[in-house]
Design a protein around this nucleic acid. Structure first.
Length: 491
RNA sequence: GGUCGGUUGGCCGAGCGGCUAGGCAGCGGUCUGCAAAACCGCGUACGGCGGUUCGAAUCCGCCACCGACCUCCA
Protein backbone atom coordinates (compact mmCIF):
# COMPACT_ATOMS: atom_id res chain seq x y z
CA UNK A 1 0.00 0.00 0.00
CA UNK A 2 1.65 3.17 -1.16
CA UNK A 3 1.07 6.51 0.46
CA UNK A 4 2.69 9.89 0.43
CA UNK A 5 5.33 9.79 3.13
CA UNK A 6 5.48 12.72 5.52
CA UNK A 7 8.63 13.36 7.53
CA UNK A 8 9.46 15.91 10.16
CA UNK A 9 12.49 17.81 8.94
CA UNK A 10 14.57 19.24 11.76
CA UNK A 11 15.89 21.84 9.36
CA UNK A 12 12.49 23.38 8.65
CA UNK A 13 10.95 22.31 11.98
CA UNK A 14 7.96 21.16 9.98
CA UNK A 15 6.48 18.03 8.57
CA UNK A 16 7.19 17.81 4.85
CA UNK A 17 6.24 15.51 2.03
CA UNK A 18 9.19 13.23 1.40
CA UNK A 19 10.46 13.46 -2.15
CA UNK A 20 13.60 11.50 -2.93
CA UNK A 21 16.12 13.09 -5.26
CA UNK A 22 15.70 10.15 -7.60
CA UNK A 23 12.22 8.65 -7.38
CA UNK A 24 12.38 5.07 -6.18
CA UNK A 25 15.86 5.47 -4.72
CA UNK A 26 16.67 6.75 -1.25
CA UNK A 27 20.04 7.51 0.30
CA UNK A 28 20.18 7.74 4.06
CA UNK A 29 23.08 8.33 6.40
CA UNK A 30 22.85 7.75 10.13
CA UNK A 31 25.42 8.52 12.81
CA UNK A 32 26.54 5.27 14.35
CA UNK A 33 28.38 4.54 17.55
CA UNK A 34 31.81 5.51 18.75
CA UNK A 35 33.08 2.09 19.65
CA UNK A 36 34.75 2.60 23.00
CA UNK A 37 32.17 0.97 25.24
CA UNK A 38 29.23 -1.37 25.29
CA UNK A 39 26.05 -0.26 23.58
CA UNK A 40 23.37 0.93 25.97
CA UNK A 41 19.65 1.54 25.76
CA UNK A 42 20.33 4.94 24.25
CA UNK A 43 22.10 3.39 21.28
CA UNK A 44 19.09 1.21 20.62
CA UNK A 45 16.85 4.20 19.95
CA UNK A 46 18.42 5.55 16.74
CA UNK A 47 19.26 2.03 15.64
CA UNK A 48 15.63 0.99 15.89
CA UNK A 49 14.22 4.29 14.63
CA UNK A 50 16.28 4.29 11.48
CA UNK A 51 15.95 0.56 11.00
CA UNK A 52 12.23 1.20 10.99
CA UNK A 53 12.70 3.99 8.44
CA UNK A 54 14.89 1.71 6.31
CA UNK A 55 12.32 -1.08 6.45
CA UNK A 56 9.42 1.27 5.82
CA UNK A 57 11.02 2.91 2.80
CA UNK A 58 11.83 -0.49 1.35
CA UNK A 59 8.30 -1.72 1.95
CA UNK A 60 7.10 1.24 -0.08
CA UNK A 61 9.06 -0.02 -3.03
CA UNK A 62 12.15 2.12 -2.70
CA UNK A 63 15.66 0.92 -3.24
CA UNK A 64 17.45 2.24 -0.18
CA UNK A 65 21.13 2.70 0.48
CA UNK A 66 21.54 2.94 4.22
CA UNK A 67 24.91 4.09 5.52
CA UNK A 68 25.74 3.96 9.19
CA UNK A 69 29.26 4.78 10.24
CA UNK A 70 31.44 3.37 12.97
CA UNK A 71 33.56 6.01 14.65
CA UNK A 72 36.85 4.40 15.47
CA UNK A 73 39.05 7.46 15.80
CA UNK A 74 38.90 11.19 16.21
CA UNK A 75 36.30 11.43 18.92
CA UNK A 76 37.99 13.36 21.67
CA UNK A 77 37.10 13.19 25.32
CA UNK A 78 36.82 16.96 25.35
CA UNK A 79 37.48 20.02 23.35
CA UNK A 80 40.75 21.08 24.93
CA UNK A 81 44.05 20.66 23.20
CA UNK A 82 45.03 17.85 25.52
CA UNK A 83 41.68 16.15 24.83
CA UNK A 84 42.42 12.50 24.41
CA UNK A 85 40.85 10.23 21.83
CA UNK A 86 38.11 8.20 23.50
CA UNK A 87 39.25 4.96 22.00
CA UNK A 88 42.88 5.54 22.77
CA UNK A 89 42.02 6.38 26.34
CA UNK A 90 40.10 3.16 26.72
CA UNK A 91 42.97 1.24 25.15
CA UNK A 92 45.45 2.81 27.55
CA UNK A 93 43.31 1.95 30.55
CA UNK A 94 42.84 -1.63 29.42
CA UNK A 95 46.35 -2.02 28.07
CA UNK A 96 45.12 -2.92 24.63
CA UNK A 97 45.91 -1.85 21.12
CA UNK A 98 43.31 0.81 20.14
CA UNK A 99 42.16 -1.37 17.28
CA UNK A 100 41.52 -4.19 19.74
CA UNK A 101 39.13 -1.91 21.55
CA UNK A 102 37.51 -0.99 18.27
CA UNK A 103 37.16 -4.59 17.21
CA UNK A 104 35.77 -5.73 20.53
CA UNK A 105 33.06 -3.11 20.79
CA UNK A 106 32.20 -3.20 17.11
CA UNK A 107 31.47 -6.90 17.38
CA UNK A 108 29.53 -6.35 20.58
CA UNK A 109 27.49 -3.61 18.93
CA UNK A 110 26.73 -5.79 15.93
CA UNK A 111 25.59 -8.60 18.16
CA UNK A 112 23.25 -6.31 20.09
CA UNK A 113 21.88 -4.85 16.88
CA UNK A 114 21.19 -8.30 15.54
CA UNK A 115 19.40 -9.21 18.77
CA UNK A 116 17.21 -6.15 18.32
CA UNK A 117 16.47 -7.45 14.84
CA UNK A 118 17.81 -4.38 13.08
CA UNK A 119 18.87 -5.00 9.53
CA UNK A 120 22.53 -4.42 8.76
CA UNK A 121 23.11 -1.16 6.91
CA UNK A 122 24.07 -1.31 3.26
CA UNK A 123 27.51 0.07 4.08
CA UNK A 124 29.11 0.54 7.47
CA UNK A 125 32.16 2.69 6.86
CA UNK A 126 34.84 3.39 9.45
CA UNK A 127 36.60 6.67 10.03
CA UNK A 128 40.05 5.07 9.99
CA UNK A 129 39.31 3.57 6.59
CA UNK A 130 38.62 6.97 5.06
CA UNK A 131 41.62 9.10 5.91
CA UNK A 132 42.25 10.23 2.35
CA UNK A 133 38.66 11.30 1.86
CA UNK A 134 38.70 13.27 5.09
CA UNK A 135 42.00 14.94 4.29
CA UNK A 136 40.69 15.85 0.85
CA UNK A 137 37.63 17.44 2.34
CA UNK A 138 39.74 19.46 4.77
CA UNK A 139 41.89 20.63 1.87
CA UNK A 140 38.84 21.80 -0.02
CA UNK A 141 37.58 23.76 2.95
CA UNK A 142 41.00 25.37 3.34
CA UNK A 143 41.10 26.21 -0.38
CA UNK A 144 37.72 27.81 -0.13
CA UNK A 145 38.90 29.96 2.72
CA UNK A 146 36.70 28.68 5.51
CA UNK A 147 39.46 27.18 7.60
CA UNK A 148 42.89 28.14 8.84
CA UNK A 149 45.96 26.29 9.88
CA UNK A 150 47.50 26.85 13.29
CA UNK A 151 50.49 25.02 14.60
CA UNK A 152 49.87 21.87 12.57
CA UNK A 153 46.14 21.78 13.25
CA UNK A 154 43.36 23.00 11.01
CA UNK A 155 40.30 24.75 12.39
CA UNK A 156 37.03 25.65 10.83
CA UNK A 157 36.49 29.40 10.78
CA UNK A 158 32.98 29.77 12.08
CA UNK A 159 33.00 33.54 12.02
CA UNK A 160 34.10 33.68 8.40
CA UNK A 161 31.52 31.09 7.45
CA UNK A 162 28.81 33.04 9.22
CA UNK A 163 29.48 36.07 7.07
CA UNK A 164 28.39 34.10 4.02
CA UNK A 165 26.10 31.45 5.44
CA UNK A 166 23.81 30.68 8.32
CA UNK A 167 25.77 28.79 10.95
CA UNK A 168 23.27 27.53 13.48
CA UNK A 169 20.29 27.06 11.17
CA UNK A 170 19.78 23.43 12.13
CA UNK A 171 20.03 23.78 15.88
CA UNK A 172 18.54 27.28 16.05
CA UNK A 173 21.64 28.96 17.32
CA UNK A 174 22.99 32.41 16.70
CA UNK A 175 26.65 33.08 16.30
CA UNK A 176 26.56 35.96 18.79
CA UNK A 177 25.16 33.63 21.42
CA UNK A 178 27.83 31.09 20.67
CA UNK A 179 30.52 33.68 20.97
CA UNK A 180 29.11 34.98 24.22
CA UNK A 181 29.26 31.57 25.76
CA UNK A 182 33.00 31.51 25.79
CA UNK A 183 34.16 28.61 27.78
CA UNK A 184 37.56 29.27 29.21
CA UNK A 185 39.06 25.92 28.42
CA UNK A 186 42.78 25.88 28.75
CA UNK A 187 44.86 25.50 25.65
CA UNK A 188 42.39 26.87 23.18
CA UNK A 189 44.70 29.60 22.15
CA UNK A 190 45.22 28.06 18.73
CA UNK A 191 41.66 28.82 17.82
CA UNK A 192 40.77 32.26 16.64
CA UNK A 193 37.38 31.80 18.13
CA UNK A 194 35.96 29.57 20.78
CA UNK A 195 33.21 28.45 18.40
CA UNK A 196 35.71 27.17 15.84
CA UNK A 197 36.14 23.43 15.66
CA UNK A 198 38.97 21.20 14.59
CA UNK A 199 39.09 19.70 11.11
CA UNK A 200 42.53 18.24 11.66
CA UNK A 201 44.24 17.94 14.98
CA UNK A 202 47.96 17.62 15.38
CA UNK A 203 48.82 14.68 17.60
CA UNK A 204 51.32 14.56 20.42
CA UNK A 205 54.34 12.31 20.10
CA UNK A 206 53.02 9.64 22.47
CA UNK A 207 49.69 9.31 20.68
CA UNK A 208 49.24 5.95 18.98
CA UNK A 209 46.41 6.72 16.61
CA UNK A 210 47.67 9.28 14.13
CA UNK A 211 48.13 9.62 10.42
CA UNK A 212 50.43 11.52 8.13
CA UNK A 213 48.57 14.55 6.95
CA UNK A 214 49.55 17.60 4.89
CA UNK A 215 49.66 19.71 8.06
CA UNK A 216 51.09 17.36 10.65
CA UNK A 217 50.91 13.87 12.00
CA UNK A 218 47.46 13.91 13.47
CA UNK A 219 43.82 12.91 13.35
CA UNK A 220 40.79 14.30 11.57
CA UNK A 221 38.22 16.18 13.62
CA UNK A 222 35.23 14.13 14.66
CA UNK A 223 32.75 15.93 12.43
CA UNK A 224 34.81 15.29 9.31
CA UNK A 225 34.16 11.59 8.95
CA UNK A 226 30.43 11.95 8.36
CA UNK A 227 30.92 14.65 5.75
CA UNK A 228 33.59 12.67 3.93
CA UNK A 229 31.91 9.28 4.09
CA UNK A 230 28.37 10.38 3.30
CA UNK A 231 29.71 12.21 0.26
CA UNK A 232 31.70 9.20 -0.84
CA UNK A 233 28.83 6.75 -0.71
CA UNK A 234 25.75 8.90 -1.25
CA UNK A 235 27.08 11.81 -3.24
CA UNK A 236 27.20 15.51 -2.50
CA UNK A 237 23.42 15.59 -2.34
CA UNK A 238 21.44 12.93 -0.57
CA UNK A 239 18.02 12.44 0.96
CA UNK A 240 18.11 11.74 4.66
CA UNK A 241 20.56 12.25 7.47
CA UNK A 242 19.62 10.86 10.86
CA UNK A 243 20.93 10.61 14.37
CA UNK A 244 20.20 11.29 18.02
CA UNK A 245 18.88 14.73 18.87
CA UNK A 246 21.91 15.35 21.02
CA UNK A 247 23.99 15.40 17.87
CA UNK A 248 22.22 18.39 16.33
CA UNK A 249 24.76 20.67 17.85
CA UNK A 250 27.58 20.82 17.28
CA UNK A 251 27.98 17.65 15.23
CA UNK A 252 25.33 18.05 12.56
CA UNK A 253 25.62 21.79 12.46
CA UNK A 254 29.31 21.33 11.75
CA UNK A 255 28.53 18.80 9.03
CA UNK A 256 26.34 21.31 7.23
CA UNK A 257 29.02 23.96 7.47
CA UNK A 258 31.64 21.54 6.20
CA UNK A 259 29.57 20.44 3.22
CA UNK A 260 28.80 23.98 2.21
CA UNK A 261 32.42 25.02 2.62
CA UNK A 262 33.86 22.04 0.81
CA UNK A 263 31.32 21.47 -1.95
CA UNK A 264 29.45 24.73 -2.18
CA UNK A 265 26.06 23.47 -1.10
CA UNK A 266 24.26 21.63 1.63
CA UNK A 267 24.13 17.91 1.10
CA UNK A 268 21.13 16.83 3.14
CA UNK A 269 17.49 17.33 2.18
CA UNK A 270 15.84 15.90 5.30
CA UNK A 271 17.37 15.87 8.76
CA UNK A 272 15.73 13.45 11.13
CA UNK A 273 16.47 13.18 14.83
CA UNK A 274 15.28 10.64 17.31
CA UNK A 275 14.68 11.83 20.85
CA UNK A 276 16.46 10.48 23.89
CA UNK A 277 15.76 7.75 26.39
CA UNK A 278 15.36 9.13 29.87
CA UNK A 279 15.66 7.44 33.20
CA UNK A 280 13.80 9.07 36.06
CA UNK A 281 13.19 11.95 33.71
CA UNK A 282 16.88 12.47 32.98
CA UNK A 283 18.80 11.69 29.87
CA UNK A 284 20.43 8.29 29.92
CA UNK A 285 24.03 8.69 28.93
CA UNK A 286 27.59 7.73 29.44
CA UNK A 287 28.58 11.10 30.78
CA UNK A 288 25.91 10.87 33.48
CA UNK A 289 26.75 7.28 34.29
CA UNK A 290 23.07 6.35 34.49
CA UNK A 291 22.94 4.09 31.48
CA UNK A 292 21.88 0.47 31.23
CA UNK A 293 23.71 -1.54 28.60
CA UNK A 294 21.78 -3.73 26.22
CA UNK A 295 23.49 -6.82 27.56
CA UNK A 296 22.31 -5.86 31.02
CA UNK A 297 18.78 -5.33 29.73
CA UNK A 298 18.70 -8.73 28.08
CA UNK A 299 20.10 -10.51 31.13
CA UNK A 300 18.49 -8.42 33.86
CA UNK A 301 21.83 -7.80 35.52
CA UNK A 302 21.53 -4.21 36.64
CA UNK A 303 20.38 -2.83 39.97
CA UNK A 304 17.57 -0.87 38.35
CA UNK A 305 16.16 -3.91 36.59
CA UNK A 306 13.54 -6.06 38.27
CA UNK A 307 13.89 -8.69 35.58
CA UNK A 308 15.45 -9.40 32.19
CA UNK A 309 13.77 -7.85 29.16
CA UNK A 310 14.06 -9.54 25.81
CA UNK A 311 15.33 -7.67 22.76
CA UNK A 312 11.86 -7.70 21.22
CA UNK A 313 10.37 -6.27 24.40
CA UNK A 314 12.87 -3.42 24.15
CA UNK A 315 12.05 -2.93 20.49
CA UNK A 316 8.31 -2.97 21.10
CA UNK A 317 8.76 -0.60 24.05
CA UNK A 318 10.41 1.90 21.72
CA UNK A 319 7.82 1.44 18.99
CA UNK A 320 5.06 2.29 21.45
CA UNK A 321 6.40 5.83 21.66
CA UNK A 322 6.93 8.18 18.77
CA UNK A 323 10.59 8.50 17.84
CA UNK A 324 10.58 12.27 18.37
CA UNK A 325 9.32 12.01 21.94
CA UNK A 326 11.48 11.29 24.92
CA UNK A 327 10.80 7.87 26.31
CA UNK A 328 11.13 7.24 30.01
CA UNK A 329 12.56 3.99 31.20
CA UNK A 330 10.81 2.13 34.00
CA UNK A 331 10.25 -1.48 34.94
CA UNK A 332 6.51 -0.93 34.89
CA UNK A 333 6.60 0.39 31.33
CA UNK A 334 8.85 -2.43 30.13
CA UNK A 335 6.64 -5.03 31.75
CA UNK A 336 3.60 -3.52 30.10
CA UNK A 337 5.41 -3.65 26.78
CA UNK A 338 6.32 -7.28 27.34
CA UNK A 339 2.71 -8.24 27.89
CA UNK A 340 1.39 -6.13 25.06
CA UNK A 341 3.90 -7.63 22.66
CA UNK A 342 2.92 -11.09 23.78
CA UNK A 343 -0.72 -10.38 23.09
CA UNK A 344 0.06 -9.00 19.65
CA UNK A 345 2.27 -11.93 18.68
CA UNK A 346 -0.24 -14.50 19.88
CA UNK A 347 -2.92 -12.91 17.76
CA UNK A 348 -0.63 -12.87 14.73
CA UNK A 349 -0.06 -16.59 15.19
CA UNK A 350 -3.75 -17.18 15.68
CA UNK A 351 -4.78 -15.72 12.33
CA UNK A 352 -3.76 -18.87 10.49
CA UNK A 353 -5.99 -20.95 12.73
CA UNK A 354 -9.16 -18.95 12.28
CA UNK A 355 -12.22 -20.57 10.81
CA UNK A 356 -13.58 -18.87 7.76
CA UNK A 357 -17.19 -17.75 7.45
CA UNK A 358 -19.34 -16.67 4.54
CA UNK A 359 -18.90 -13.02 5.30
CA UNK A 360 -16.66 -10.76 7.34
CA UNK A 361 -18.01 -8.69 10.18
CA UNK A 362 -14.70 -6.86 10.33
CA UNK A 363 -13.20 -4.40 7.86
CA UNK A 364 -9.72 -5.63 6.99
CA UNK A 365 -9.16 -3.07 4.25
CA UNK A 366 -9.84 -0.21 6.64
CA UNK A 367 -7.48 -1.64 9.20
CA UNK A 368 -4.72 -1.85 6.63
CA UNK A 369 -5.36 1.66 5.48
CA UNK A 370 -5.35 3.01 9.04
CA UNK A 371 -2.06 1.33 9.85
CA UNK A 372 -0.32 2.51 6.69
CA UNK A 373 -1.69 6.01 7.12
CA UNK A 374 -0.17 6.13 10.59
CA UNK A 375 3.17 4.86 9.32
CA UNK A 376 3.21 7.36 6.50
CA UNK A 377 2.70 10.18 8.98
CA UNK A 378 6.27 10.55 10.16
CA UNK A 379 6.47 6.91 11.26
CA UNK A 380 3.73 7.17 13.87
CA UNK A 381 4.21 3.70 15.31
CA UNK A 382 2.12 4.30 18.47
CA UNK A 383 -0.91 4.98 16.29
CA UNK A 384 -0.09 2.10 13.99
CA UNK A 385 0.13 -0.21 16.98
CA UNK A 386 -3.14 1.12 18.39
CA UNK A 387 -4.81 0.09 15.14
CA UNK A 388 -3.04 -3.23 15.13
CA UNK A 389 -4.44 -3.93 18.58
CA UNK A 390 -7.87 -3.35 17.11
CA UNK A 391 -6.99 -6.15 14.76
CA UNK A 392 -5.88 -8.24 17.72
CA UNK A 393 -9.26 -7.73 19.30
CA UNK A 394 -10.99 -8.91 16.13
CA UNK A 395 -8.83 -11.97 15.78
CA UNK A 396 -9.56 -13.01 19.34
CA UNK A 397 -13.23 -12.26 18.94
CA UNK A 398 -13.40 -14.30 15.73
CA UNK A 399 -11.59 -17.11 17.49
CA UNK A 400 -14.14 -16.91 20.30
CA UNK A 401 -16.97 -16.95 17.78
CA UNK A 402 -18.17 -13.41 18.36
CA UNK A 403 -17.15 -12.07 14.97
CA UNK A 404 -16.78 -13.58 11.52
CA UNK A 405 -14.28 -13.37 8.71
CA UNK A 406 -14.24 -14.66 5.15
CA UNK A 407 -11.56 -16.96 3.80
CA UNK A 408 -10.32 -14.24 1.52
CA UNK A 409 -10.07 -11.75 4.36
CA UNK A 410 -8.15 -14.27 6.45
CA UNK A 411 -5.53 -14.47 3.73
CA UNK A 412 -5.49 -10.72 3.34
CA UNK A 413 -5.13 -10.14 7.06
CA UNK A 414 -2.49 -12.81 7.44
CA UNK A 415 -0.34 -11.43 4.70
CA UNK A 416 -0.84 -7.88 5.93
CA UNK A 417 0.15 -8.74 9.48
CA UNK A 418 3.18 -10.66 8.32
CA UNK A 419 4.32 -7.68 6.31
CA UNK A 420 3.65 -4.97 8.85
CA UNK A 421 4.61 -6.77 12.04
CA UNK A 422 7.62 -8.74 10.89
CA UNK A 423 8.97 -6.87 7.90
CA UNK A 424 8.16 -3.25 8.65
CA UNK A 425 8.05 -3.04 12.44
CA UNK A 426 10.79 -5.64 12.57
CA UNK A 427 9.33 -7.70 15.38
CA UNK A 428 9.93 -11.41 15.54
CA UNK A 429 8.80 -14.40 17.53
CA UNK A 430 11.47 -15.12 20.05
CA UNK A 431 10.29 -18.02 22.17
CA UNK A 432 13.34 -20.20 22.10
CA UNK A 433 11.56 -23.53 22.34
CA UNK A 434 8.24 -22.82 20.71
CA UNK A 435 5.81 -25.59 19.87
CA UNK A 436 7.65 -26.79 16.82
CA UNK A 437 11.07 -26.21 18.31
CA UNK A 438 11.42 -29.54 20.00
CA UNK A 439 9.19 -32.11 18.42
CA UNK A 440 9.63 -34.82 21.03
CA UNK A 441 8.87 -32.45 23.86
CA UNK A 442 5.77 -31.35 22.02
CA UNK A 443 4.63 -34.91 21.46
CA UNK A 444 5.20 -35.74 25.12
CA UNK A 445 3.17 -32.78 26.28
CA UNK A 446 0.39 -33.58 23.84
CA UNK A 447 0.30 -37.11 25.18
CA UNK A 448 -0.04 -35.89 28.75
CA UNK A 449 -2.75 -33.49 27.73
CA UNK A 450 -4.59 -36.21 25.90
CA UNK A 451 -4.57 -38.27 29.09
CA UNK A 452 -5.74 -35.21 30.95
CA UNK A 453 -8.55 -34.84 28.46
CA UNK A 454 -9.62 -38.38 29.16
CA UNK A 455 -9.49 -37.74 32.88
CA UNK A 456 -11.66 -34.69 32.35
CA UNK A 457 -14.10 -36.73 30.30
CA UNK A 458 -14.69 -39.02 33.25
CA UNK A 459 -14.78 -36.00 35.56
CA UNK A 460 -11.63 -37.05 37.35
CA UNK A 461 -10.79 -33.46 38.24
CA UNK A 462 -8.00 -34.41 40.64
CA UNK A 463 -5.97 -36.12 37.93
CA UNK A 464 -6.76 -33.43 35.40
CA UNK A 465 -5.68 -30.67 37.78
CA UNK A 466 -2.60 -32.60 38.86
CA UNK A 467 -1.40 -32.86 35.27
CA UNK A 468 -2.07 -29.20 34.66
CA UNK A 469 -0.45 -28.05 37.90
CA UNK A 470 2.64 -30.17 37.53
CA UNK A 471 3.12 -29.15 33.92
CA UNK A 472 2.82 -25.58 35.07
CA UNK A 473 5.50 -26.15 37.68
CA UNK A 474 7.78 -27.40 34.91
CA UNK A 475 6.94 -24.38 32.79
CA UNK A 476 4.18 -25.56 30.48
CA UNK A 477 1.04 -23.47 30.58
CA UNK A 478 -2.16 -25.29 29.71
CA UNK A 479 -5.23 -23.50 28.43
CA UNK A 480 -8.50 -25.26 27.85
CA UNK A 481 -10.46 -24.19 24.82
CA UNK A 482 -13.70 -25.52 23.54
CA UNK A 483 -13.20 -28.99 22.12
CA UNK A 484 -9.64 -29.36 23.34
CA UNK A 485 -6.63 -27.60 24.71
CA UNK A 486 -3.76 -25.28 23.91
CA UNK A 487 -0.43 -25.08 25.59
CA UNK A 488 2.67 -22.94 25.56
CA UNK A 489 5.99 -22.77 27.29
CA UNK A 490 6.39 -20.15 29.98
CA UNK A 491 9.27 -17.72 29.58
C1' G B 1 22.04 33.07 31.26
C1' G B 2 20.69 31.83 25.80
C1' U B 3 17.95 28.46 22.42
C1' C B 4 14.45 24.62 21.96
C1' G B 5 11.00 21.06 23.78
C1' G B 6 7.75 19.00 27.39
C1' U B 7 3.78 18.85 31.63
C1' U B 8 -2.40 13.92 29.45
C1' G B 9 -6.36 9.08 33.79
C1' G B 10 -2.64 4.18 38.80
C1' C B 11 1.87 3.49 35.02
C1' C B 12 3.56 4.06 29.82
C1' G B 13 1.99 6.78 25.77
C1' A B 14 -0.98 8.98 21.20
C1' G B 15 -3.87 13.10 19.94
C1' C B 16 -2.62 19.27 18.23
C1' G B 17 -10.20 23.14 17.66
C1' G B 18 -15.94 19.33 18.06
C1' C B 19 -15.65 12.51 17.08
C1' U B 20 -13.96 5.92 22.47
C1' A B 21 -6.46 6.46 20.84
C1' G B 22 -3.84 2.15 22.32
C1' G B 23 -0.95 -0.97 25.80
C1' C B 24 -0.38 -2.41 31.03
C1' A B 25 -2.67 -2.47 35.78
C1' G B 26 -7.65 -2.24 38.34
C1' C B 27 -13.09 -3.19 38.83
C1' G B 28 -17.75 -5.79 37.18
C1' G B 29 -19.67 -9.54 33.94
C1' U B 30 -19.67 -13.82 30.11
C1' C B 31 -17.42 -18.53 29.16
C1' U B 32 -15.29 -22.68 32.27
C1' G B 33 -15.86 -28.50 36.80
C1' C B 34 -12.01 -25.06 38.58
C1' A B 35 -8.12 -22.17 36.52
C1' A B 36 -5.82 -19.67 32.55
C1' A B 37 -6.75 -17.32 28.08
C1' A B 38 -10.33 -14.79 25.45
C1' C B 39 -14.67 -11.73 24.97
C1' C B 40 -18.17 -7.69 26.81
C1' G B 41 -18.68 -3.41 29.96
C1' C B 42 -16.52 0.43 33.40
C1' G B 43 -12.71 5.05 34.71
C1' U B 44 -15.06 10.66 32.20
C1' A B 45 -7.45 12.46 32.26
C1' C B 46 -5.40 16.63 29.94
C1' G B 47 0.21 21.62 35.23
C1' G B 48 -2.18 26.64 37.06
C1' C B 49 -4.70 31.30 35.85
C1' G B 50 -6.79 34.30 32.16
C1' G B 51 -8.22 35.06 26.89
C1' U B 52 -10.04 33.78 21.66
C1' U B 53 -14.24 30.61 19.98
C1' C B 54 -20.91 28.34 19.44
C1' G B 55 -17.07 24.79 21.20
C1' A B 56 -9.99 24.04 23.62
C1' A B 57 -6.11 18.76 26.10
C1' U B 58 -5.65 21.04 21.23
C1' C B 59 -5.00 28.36 19.44
C1' C B 60 -3.03 33.05 22.31
C1' G B 61 -0.92 35.37 26.91
C1' C B 62 1.10 35.04 31.75
C1' C B 63 2.87 31.84 35.72
C1' A B 64 4.83 27.25 37.78
C1' C B 65 7.53 22.90 37.22
C1' C B 66 10.61 19.36 34.30
C1' G B 67 14.09 18.29 30.51
C1' A B 68 17.52 18.71 26.21
C1' C B 69 21.33 21.51 23.78
C1' C B 70 24.95 25.52 24.44
C1' U B 71 32.05 20.43 26.43
C1' C B 72 31.70 14.59 25.11
C1' C B 73 27.18 11.83 24.62
C1' A B 74 22.53 7.95 20.56
Amino acid sequence: MSKEFIVYNTLSRKKEVFKPITPGYVGMYVCGPTVYGEAHLGHARPAITFDLLFRYLKSQGNKVRYIRNVTDVGHLVNDADEGEDKIEKKARLEQLEPMEVVQHYTLSYHKNMEQLNTLPPSIEPRATGHMMEQIDAVKKILENGYAYEANGSVYFDVEKYSQDHDYGKLSGRKLEDLLENTRELSGQSEKRNSADFALWKKADKHVLMKWDGPWSEGVPGWHMECTAMSTKYLGQKFDIHGGGSDLKFPHHEAEIAQSVSAYGSESVNYWMHNNLITINGQKMGKSLGNFITLNEMFSGSHDLLEQAYSPMTVRFFMLQAHYRSTLDFSNEALQAAEKGLDRLMKAVELVGKLNASEKSSVDVAKLMDDVYTAMSDDLNTPIALAHLFEGVKWINAIHAGHQTISAQDIEELKSFLNTIVFEVLGLKIEEEAAAGGDEKLGQTIELLLKLRGEAKARKDWDTADQIRDELKAIGVIVKDVKDGFEWELAE
